[in-house]
Amino acid sequence: MNPLVSAALAGPVLDPVVDLRRMLALHFMVNAFRAGTVVAVLAAVVGWLMVLRRQSFAGHTLAVVSFPGAAAAIWLGVSATVGYFAGSIAAALVIALVPRGAAGRPRSQESAVIGTVQAFALACGALFVSLYGGFLDSITGLLFGSFLGVSDGQVIALVVVAAAVLAVLAVIGRPLLFATVDGGVAAARGVPVRVLSVLFLLVLGCTAAEVSQVTGALLVFALLVMPAAAAQQVTARPVAGLALSVVFGLGVVWASLSVAFWSPWPVGFWVSTIGFALYLVAAGGRAALTRWRRRGADGRRTAGERRPEALLPGVVGA
């Protein structure tokens, strides 16, 4: 056995430099970090928009749908990567067909349609796995993620798709944000709200398929929602929020890959747990800060009879 692998199996020596070097001496770990980094950046940017657009449920469904896609691909003997993307993009188009309100906002039936798509997709996934016949391990991998088997080819595919998606977002980002925050006015200004909404679902589908390949279909939220939601707790500035979301995403992925390498527990668990902890800290910190400021403002108001707004120069991070 390779001495480095046996060293890895022996556990960390708790010297960061030595442990990091031992971990990155293994090619599969290098690829895991490469794939994780690409996916974290993409998920953080797309997730920030998704959280603002309140399309988390759609995002979750698009991720879940990548499971039957991948299962079907394996059953048919095609690359699982193709299956992930095919499933998510097909589901994105189905959800895009749901009629919308005038201002581009989803109507109430959207969540019902999405839920239906999701249940059907999961059932199809179970079917494909059973048709394929053996190797139950692959279900766990598809649903809860595995980072051991990321090939060089997959890393390249992830990079290409992520670059394409980010390029599309760079072009449509500003009108998309306008349509998200203020659909009626955006439409009156000639922003194609409906087209942007479909484009964003496709972007979301590609992203969900990418993230699924690292975290598994069920744990996509760990990277798509948690960093973005935590960043939005901290700041309401668009540029700062996006940047912070990326920083959080990278932190979660790098930390969880490192921890998972030395622990017997799956990487999906670590990604979700670290992401959840991050969100709790951000939300708790914001709540505490708001309360503290309010108390401060009340105290000063009774003293000086001034409006609380005048005493609050911009909220958290503004």
Partner: peptide, 11 residues
Amino acid sequence: MGDDGDRWGLP
């Protein structure tokens, strides 16, 4: 957004 929200590309 009222000023340049309808423009494509990044500012």
